[in-house]
C-alpha cells in the first residue's frame, strides 16, 4: 500500500491538465448533461466518439482509464441484462422460456452502456485524473462562493474537505506502522472466526483513532498559531484564472450538446 498515490490523479502534460480547475468542474457537469441528451444511434455514436477524443486529449494511458471503469463493471453488466430482458417492444427477436428479447431491448442495453461508459470517462478525465484533489476542493469552493450570501459556510466546508484529503495518505501510513508494530508483538490478523478477527483489529483501531485526534489537535493549534480565522478576506496562494482555452473548451462542449440534439432529430433506427 505504501506508494499508492491518493485519488487517481495522473500527472501528465496535456490540454486538459492545463485547464482551470473550475472550468473542468463545469465541463464535467456539461458533459453529463450531454450524455443524457442522446436519443438515437447517431447521437450515441457521437457521444462514444467524444469519449475517445477526451481520452486522447488528456494523454492518460488506456490502462489507467480501465482502472476507473473496473469498479463499475458489475453495474454495467446489471444494466445490460436488465435492459435486454425487460424492455418490451412490438416484435420479439426471440424468446426462450419466460425470457423474451426485443430488438428495442438490445438497443437500450447498448445505449445505456455507452452512456454509463462516457459518463465515467468524462467525469474522471475532467476531474479526478487531471485535477489534483486540492485543486478540486479549491475549485468547488470558488464555484459555490455565491452561496456565502445566504450564510452557507462554503470556505469552511472546502477547508474540511482539503484537510480530510490531506490526511488520507498520512492515516494509511499510520495504519501500516501500527499494524507492523502489533504484528511484531505477535498479533494475528488472519486466522480465527469473524468475531476473533474483528477483535484482533482493536490493537490497530485504538491507537489509530487516538493519533487522528492528536493530529487534528496539533493541526488546529498550528493553524491558530498562523492566525487562521476562516475565509473572510483570505487570499489564495494559487489563484485560479480562466483564460481563452477554458472558454473555448466550454463552448465546444455546449456546441456538442446542441449538435447531439440536432442528431436526435434524424429519424434513423430506434429512438430511446
Amino acid at each position: 500500500m505504501k506508494n499508492i498515490s491518493f485519488g487517481q490523479y495522473y500527472p501528465a502534460e496535456s490540454l486538459i491538465h492545463r485547464l482551470d480547475a473550475r472550468a473542468k468542474v463545469i465541463l464535467a457537469l456539461l458533459y453529463i448533461v450531454c450524455s443524457f441528451l442522446c436519443k438515437n444511434i447517431i447521437s450515441f455514436a457521437a457521444l462514444a466518439l467524444s469519449a475517445v477524443v477526451l481520452v486522447l486529449l488528456s494523454n492518460i494511458p488506456l490502462k489507467a482509464v480501465f482502472r476507473a471503469i473496473r469498479p463499475i463493471l458489475f453495474v454495467m453488466l446489471f444494466t445490460v441484462v436488465l435492459n435486454v430482458f425487460w424492455t418490451k417492444g412490438e416484435s420479439p427477436l426471440f424468446s426462450w422460456g419466460i425470457l423474451t428479447v426485443y430488438p428495442e431491448g438490445l438497443y437500450n442495453a447498448l445505449f445505456m452502456l455507452v452512456r454509463i461508459l462516457s459518463l465515467i470517462i468524462g467525469t474522471s478525465i475532467f476531474m479526478t485524473y487531471t485535477t489534483t484533489p486540492i485543486e478540486l476542493a479549491d475549485a468547488i469552493e470558488q464555484l459555490l462562493a455565491p452561496l456565502k450570501k445566504i450564510k452557507i459556510p462554503v470556505h469552511e466546508f472546502s477547508m474540511m474537505m482539503t484537510v480530510a484529503l490531506r490526511f488520507i495518505p498520512t492515516l494509511i501510513e499510520e495504519t501500516e506502522k501500527i499494524t507492523a508494530a502489533q504484528k511484531a508483538r505477535g498479533a494475528d490478523f488472519s486466522s480465527g472466526g469473524l468475531i476473533k478477527r474483528a477483535k484482533a483489529l482493536i490493537p490497530i483501531l485504538v491507537p489509530l483513532v487516538i493519533s487522528a485526534f492528536r493530529r487534528a489537535d496539533e493541526l488546529a493549534t498550528a493553524m491558530e498559531c498562523r492566525c487562521y480565522r476562516g475565509g473572510d478576506g483570505r487570499t489564495k496562494l494559487h489563484v485560479l484564472h480562466y483564460d481563452a482555452k477554458d472558454f473555448l473548451m466550454m463552448a465546444v462542449v455546449v456546441v456538442f450538446g446542441v449538435l447531439l440534439i440536432g442528431l436526435n432529430m434524424l429519424a434513423i433506427g430506434y429512438t430511446m
Binding site: I178, A181, P207
Partner: peptide
C-alpha cells in the same frame, strides 16, 4: 526477535 519500532508509545492501546 523482538522489534520496537519508531515512536512505539503511539501503539499503546
Amino acid at each position: 526477535v523482538g522489534l520496537v519500532m519508531q515512536y512505539p508509545e503511539y501503539q499503546l492501546f
